[in-house]
Amino acid sequence: MASQNPSQPAKLRWGELEEDDGEDLDFLLPPRQVIGPDENGIKKVIEYKFNEDGNKVKITTTTRTRKLANARLSKRAIERRSWAKFGDAVHEDVGSRLTMVSTEEILLERPRAPGSKQEEPKAAGDPLAQFQKGAVLMVCRTCGKKGDHWTSRCPYKDLAQPMEGFTDKPAASEAATAASGPTKGAYVPPGMRAGAERTAGSDMRRRNDENSVRVTNLSEDTREADLLELFRPFGAVSRVYVALDQRTQVSRGFGFVNFVNREDAQRAINKLNGYGYDSLILRVEWATPRAN
Protein backbone atom coordinates (compact mmCIF):
# COMPACT_ATOMS: atom_id res chain seq x y z
CA MET A 1 0.00 0.00 0.00
CA ALA A 2 2.60 2.43 1.11
CA SER A 3 4.85 1.82 -1.82
CA GLN A 4 2.04 2.00 -4.31
CA ASN A 5 0.83 5.44 -3.44
CA PRO A 6 3.80 7.58 -4.42
CA SER A 7 4.34 5.67 -7.62
CA GLN A 8 0.81 6.22 -8.79
CA PRO A 9 1.10 9.71 -10.25
CA ALA A 10 3.97 8.56 -12.44
CA LYS A 11 1.94 5.71 -13.80
CA LEU A 12 -1.15 7.76 -14.62
CA ARG A 13 -1.97 7.89 -18.26
CA TRP A 14 -2.99 11.16 -19.84
CA GLY A 15 -6.39 9.74 -20.65
CA GLU A 16 -7.14 9.02 -17.05
CA LEU A 17 -5.74 12.34 -15.99
CA GLU A 18 -8.21 14.26 -18.04
CA GLU A 19 -11.08 12.25 -16.75
CA ASP A 20 -10.72 13.01 -13.07
CA ASP A 21 -8.95 16.26 -13.53
CA GLY A 22 -11.72 18.25 -11.96
CA GLU A 23 -12.11 16.22 -8.85
CA ASP A 24 -8.47 15.63 -7.96
CA LEU A 25 -8.62 17.09 -4.51
CA ASP A 26 -5.87 15.00 -2.97
CA PHE A 27 -3.97 18.07 -1.92
CA LEU A 28 -6.72 18.77 0.58
CA LEU A 29 -5.96 15.60 2.51
CA PRO A 30 -3.70 15.44 5.56
CA PRO A 31 -0.30 13.97 4.73
CA ARG A 32 0.55 10.30 5.11
CA GLN A 33 1.76 9.33 8.55
CA VAL A 34 4.10 6.47 9.40
CA ILE A 35 4.40 5.33 13.02
CA GLY A 36 6.95 2.82 14.08
CA PRO A 37 8.21 0.19 13.67
CA ASP A 38 8.30 -0.23 17.44
CA GLU A 39 10.20 -2.87 19.42
CA ASN A 40 7.63 -5.50 18.50
CA GLY A 41 8.12 -4.74 14.84
CA ILE A 42 4.68 -3.19 14.49
CA LYS A 43 4.43 -0.42 11.93
CA LYS A 44 1.39 1.79 11.39
CA VAL A 45 0.72 3.71 8.23
CA ILE A 46 -2.14 6.22 8.28
CA GLU A 47 -3.38 7.49 4.95
CA TYR A 48 -6.31 9.62 3.88
CA LYS A 49 -8.23 9.22 0.71
CA PHE A 50 -11.46 10.24 -0.94
CA ASN A 51 -13.70 7.34 -1.72
CA GLU A 52 -16.04 7.11 -4.69
CA ASP A 53 -18.70 9.22 -3.00
CA GLY A 54 -16.25 11.99 -2.30
CA ASN A 55 -16.07 11.31 1.43
CA LYS A 56 -12.81 11.51 3.26
CA VAL A 57 -11.64 8.12 4.47
CA LYS A 58 -8.88 7.34 6.88
CA ILE A 59 -6.98 4.18 6.13
CA THR A 60 -4.77 2.68 8.81
CA THR A 61 -2.50 -0.14 7.76
CA THR A 62 -0.80 -2.04 10.53
CA THR A 63 1.99 -4.42 9.63
CA ARG A 64 4.19 -6.50 11.79
CA THR A 65 7.57 -7.65 10.66
CA ARG A 66 8.72 -10.75 12.42
CA LYS A 67 12.14 -12.17 12.56
CA LEU A 68 12.29 -15.80 11.59
CA ALA A 69 13.19 -17.87 14.58
CA ASN A 70 15.64 -20.12 12.82
CA ALA A 71 17.38 -17.51 10.75
CA ARG A 72 20.87 -17.96 12.12
CA LEU A 73 22.73 -16.25 9.37
CA SER A 74 26.12 -14.83 9.95
CA LYS A 75 26.70 -11.10 9.65
CA ARG A 76 28.58 -11.65 6.43
CA ALA A 77 25.73 -13.65 5.00
CA ILE A 78 23.25 -10.91 5.80
CA GLU A 79 25.56 -8.45 4.13
CA ARG A 80 25.75 -10.66 1.09
CA ARG A 81 21.97 -10.60 0.89
CA SER A 82 22.11 -7.02 -0.22
CA TRP A 83 24.80 -7.50 -2.82
CA ALA A 84 23.95 -6.11 -6.20
CA LYS A 85 23.22 -8.54 -8.96
CA PHE A 86 25.89 -9.01 -11.59
CA GLY A 87 26.56 -10.85 -14.80
CA ASP A 88 23.50 -12.14 -16.58
CA ALA A 89 21.42 -11.71 -13.44
CA VAL A 90 21.40 -7.92 -13.90
CA HIS A 91 19.12 -7.98 -16.90
CA GLU A 92 16.88 -10.66 -15.54
CA ASP A 93 13.28 -9.74 -16.13
CA VAL A 94 10.61 -10.76 -13.68
CA GLY A 95 8.98 -13.06 -16.17
CA SER A 96 12.03 -15.18 -16.85
CA ARG A 97 11.14 -17.57 -14.04
CA LEU A 98 14.56 -19.02 -13.58
CA THR A 99 13.72 -20.11 -10.08
CA MET A 100 10.55 -22.02 -9.50
CA VAL A 101 9.19 -24.00 -6.64
CA SER A 102 8.27 -27.47 -7.71
CA THR A 103 4.55 -28.02 -7.97
CA GLU A 104 5.13 -31.61 -7.13
CA GLU A 105 5.63 -32.73 -3.58
CA ILE A 106 8.78 -34.81 -3.53
CA LEU A 107 9.22 -37.21 -0.69
CA LEU A 108 12.18 -39.13 0.50
CA GLU A 109 11.04 -42.48 -0.76
CA ARG A 110 11.86 -45.23 1.64
CA PRO A 111 12.94 -48.54 0.15
CA ARG A 112 10.45 -50.17 2.49
CA ALA A 113 7.46 -48.55 4.00
CA PRO A 114 8.36 -47.68 7.58
CA GLY A 115 6.97 -50.34 9.84
CA SER A 116 6.94 -53.07 7.21
CA LYS A 117 10.38 -54.05 8.27
CA GLN A 118 9.43 -56.25 11.16
CA GLU A 119 7.22 -58.44 9.03
CA GLU A 120 9.79 -59.15 6.39
CA PRO A 121 12.36 -61.02 8.45
CA LYS A 122 9.57 -63.02 10.01
CA ALA A 123 8.24 -64.14 6.67
CA ALA A 124 11.71 -65.00 5.51
CA GLY A 125 12.60 -66.60 8.79
CA ASP A 126 9.75 -69.06 8.75
CA PRO A 127 10.65 -70.96 5.62
CA LEU A 128 14.25 -70.73 6.63
CA ALA A 129 13.58 -72.66 9.78
CA GLN A 130 11.69 -75.15 7.75
CA PHE A 131 14.55 -75.73 5.41
CA GLN A 132 17.01 -76.25 8.16
CA LYS A 133 15.22 -79.47 8.97
CA GLY A 134 16.46 -80.80 5.69
CA ALA A 135 13.54 -80.08 3.40
CA VAL A 136 13.70 -78.39 -0.01
CA LEU A 137 16.57 -76.03 -0.57
CA MET A 138 16.11 -72.43 -1.51
CA VAL A 139 17.99 -71.55 -4.62
CA CYS A 140 19.06 -68.03 -5.42
CA ARG A 141 18.17 -67.23 -9.00
CA THR A 142 20.85 -64.57 -9.24
CA CYS A 143 23.96 -66.37 -8.12
CA GLY A 144 22.72 -69.93 -8.10
CA LYS A 145 23.75 -70.55 -4.51
CA LYS A 146 21.68 -73.11 -2.69
CA GLY A 147 20.23 -72.79 0.75
CA ASP A 148 22.05 -69.61 1.67
CA HIS A 149 19.64 -66.81 0.92
CA TRP A 150 16.65 -65.81 -1.12
CA THR A 151 17.05 -64.15 -4.49
CA SER A 152 15.89 -60.82 -3.12
CA ARG A 153 18.64 -60.87 -0.51
CA CYS A 154 21.38 -62.03 -2.78
CA PRO A 155 24.62 -60.21 -1.87
CA TYR A 156 25.77 -60.58 -5.47
CA LYS A 157 22.68 -59.15 -7.09
CA ASP A 158 24.48 -56.00 -8.18
CA LEU A 159 27.27 -57.93 -9.79
CA ALA A 160 25.01 -60.19 -11.75
CA GLN A 161 23.19 -59.28 -14.92
CA PRO A 162 20.31 -56.95 -14.26
CA MET A 163 17.42 -59.21 -13.47
CA GLU A 164 14.55 -58.25 -15.66
CA GLY A 165 12.78 -61.51 -15.10
CA PHE A 166 9.71 -60.10 -13.51
CA THR A 167 9.36 -57.00 -15.58
CA ASP A 168 9.38 -58.10 -19.14
CA LYS A 169 10.31 -61.56 -20.27
CA PRO A 170 10.61 -64.25 -17.66
CA ALA A 171 10.77 -67.01 -20.19
CA ALA A 172 13.95 -65.75 -21.74
CA SER A 173 15.75 -65.15 -18.48
CA GLU A 174 14.84 -68.55 -17.16
CA ALA A 175 15.95 -70.08 -20.36
CA ALA A 176 19.28 -68.40 -19.85
CA THR A 177 19.75 -69.91 -16.44
CA ALA A 178 18.65 -73.26 -17.73
CA ALA A 179 21.13 -73.06 -20.54
CA SER A 180 23.95 -72.15 -18.22
CA GLY A 181 23.25 -75.23 -16.16
CA PRO A 182 24.88 -77.91 -18.29
CA THR A 183 28.56 -77.79 -19.08
CA LYS A 184 29.67 -75.60 -21.91
CA GLY A 185 30.46 -78.34 -24.40
CA ALA A 186 27.19 -80.16 -23.99
CA TYR A 187 24.59 -79.95 -26.71
CA VAL A 188 21.72 -77.64 -25.95
CA PRO A 189 18.66 -78.02 -28.12
CA PRO A 190 17.84 -74.84 -30.02
CA GLY A 191 14.61 -74.47 -28.12
CA MET A 192 16.45 -74.45 -24.82
CA ARG A 193 19.14 -72.01 -25.80
CA ALA A 194 19.31 -68.59 -24.27
CA GLY A 195 17.32 -66.05 -26.16
CA ALA A 196 15.39 -68.64 -28.11
CA GLU A 197 11.67 -68.21 -28.46
CA ARG A 198 10.15 -70.75 -26.16
CA THR A 199 6.77 -72.24 -26.62
CA ALA A 200 4.58 -72.19 -23.62
CA GLY A 201 4.24 -75.95 -23.65
CA SER A 202 7.82 -76.95 -23.16
CA ASP A 203 8.23 -74.16 -20.73
CA MET A 204 5.47 -75.43 -18.54
CA ARG A 205 6.58 -79.03 -18.47
CA ARG A 206 9.67 -78.28 -16.50
CA ARG A 207 7.84 -76.44 -13.83
CA ASN A 208 6.89 -77.96 -10.60
CA ASP A 209 3.28 -77.28 -10.03
CA GLU A 210 3.57 -77.12 -6.31
CA ASN A 211 1.51 -74.48 -4.62
CA SER A 212 0.51 -73.15 -7.98
CA VAL A 213 -2.39 -70.75 -8.13
CA ARG A 214 -4.26 -70.09 -11.32
CA VAL A 215 -5.50 -66.57 -11.90
CA THR A 216 -8.08 -66.07 -14.58
CA ASN A 217 -10.07 -63.16 -15.94
CA LEU A 218 -7.03 -60.91 -15.99
CA SER A 219 -7.17 -57.77 -18.05
CA GLU A 220 -4.98 -57.66 -21.13
CA ASP A 221 -2.79 -55.02 -19.60
CA THR A 222 -1.76 -57.11 -16.64
CA ARG A 223 1.89 -58.09 -16.75
CA GLU A 224 3.92 -60.39 -14.59
CA ALA A 225 5.17 -57.49 -12.56
CA ASP A 226 1.62 -56.47 -11.74
CA LEU A 227 0.72 -59.96 -10.66
CA LEU A 228 3.80 -60.15 -8.52
CA GLU A 229 2.89 -56.90 -6.88
CA LEU A 230 -0.60 -58.21 -6.24
CA PHE A 231 0.46 -61.53 -4.78
CA ARG A 232 3.65 -60.70 -2.99
CA PRO A 233 1.97 -59.39 0.17
CA PHE A 234 0.73 -62.91 0.89
CA GLY A 235 4.14 -64.49 1.08
CA ALA A 236 7.21 -65.54 -0.85
CA VAL A 237 6.42 -66.00 -4.52
CA SER A 238 8.66 -68.28 -6.53
CA ARG A 239 7.21 -67.79 -9.99
CA VAL A 240 4.79 -65.54 -11.79
CA TYR A 241 3.62 -66.28 -15.28
CA VAL A 242 1.11 -64.58 -17.54
CA ALA A 243 0.09 -66.49 -20.63
CA LEU A 244 0.70 -64.55 -23.82
CA ASP A 245 -0.64 -65.27 -27.25
CA GLN A 246 2.22 -66.67 -29.24
CA ARG A 247 1.65 -64.60 -32.32
CA THR A 248 0.31 -61.33 -31.06
CA GLN A 249 2.06 -61.28 -27.68
CA VAL A 250 -1.20 -60.13 -26.14
CA SER A 251 -2.14 -61.49 -22.76
CA ARG A 252 -4.57 -64.35 -22.94
CA GLY A 253 -6.14 -63.28 -19.72
CA PHE A 254 -4.83 -65.88 -17.35
CA GLY A 255 -1.69 -66.59 -15.42
CA PHE A 256 -0.09 -68.65 -12.69
CA VAL A 257 1.54 -67.73 -9.45
CA ASN A 258 3.63 -70.20 -7.45
CA PHE A 259 4.09 -69.71 -3.76
CA VAL A 260 6.81 -71.10 -1.60
CA ASN A 261 4.34 -71.88 1.17
CA ARG A 262 1.02 -73.59 0.66
CA GLU A 263 -0.58 -71.56 3.45
CA ASP A 264 0.34 -68.35 1.72
CA ALA A 265 -1.21 -69.61 -1.47
CA GLN A 266 -4.40 -70.54 0.34
CA ARG A 267 -4.59 -67.12 1.92
CA ALA A 268 -4.07 -65.48 -1.43
CA ILE A 269 -6.89 -67.54 -2.91
CA ASN A 270 -9.20 -66.69 -0.06
CA LYS A 271 -8.47 -63.05 -0.36
CA LEU A 272 -8.16 -62.45 -4.06
CA ASN A 273 -10.81 -64.71 -5.49
CA GLY A 274 -13.51 -62.34 -6.61
CA TYR A 275 -11.26 -59.34 -6.12
CA GLY A 276 -11.85 -56.46 -8.49
CA TYR A 277 -8.63 -55.80 -10.36
CA ASP A 278 -8.36 -53.40 -13.27
CA SER A 279 -12.15 -53.30 -13.67
CA LEU A 280 -12.40 -57.10 -13.92
CA ILE A 281 -13.26 -59.57 -11.23
CA LEU A 282 -10.42 -61.98 -10.68
CA ARG A 283 -10.90 -65.67 -10.33
CA VAL A 284 -8.18 -67.25 -8.23
CA GLU A 285 -8.03 -70.97 -7.57
CA TRP A 286 -5.65 -73.86 -7.15
CA ALA A 287 -4.14 -74.81 -10.46
CA THR A 288 -5.16 -78.27 -11.53
CA PRO A 289 -2.13 -80.50 -12.00
CA ARG A 290 -1.10 -80.91 -15.58
CA ALA A 291 -2.15 -84.18 -17.10
CA ASN A 292 1.06 -85.36 -18.76
Binding site: R97, L98, T99, M100, V101, S102, T103, E104, E105, I106, L107, L108
Partner: peptide, 8 residues
Protein backbone atom coordinates in the same frame (compact mmCIF):
# COMPACT_ATOMS: atom_id res chain seq x y z
CA UNK B 1 9.44 -31.27 0.54
CA UNK B 2 8.94 -29.04 -2.43
CA UNK B 3 12.26 -28.57 -4.14
CA UNK B 4 13.22 -25.27 -5.70
CA UNK B 5 14.08 -25.67 -9.37
CA UNK B 6 16.77 -23.42 -10.73
CA UNK B 7 17.01 -23.25 -14.48
CA UNK B 8 19.91 -20.94 -15.05
Amino acid sequence: MRPILMKG
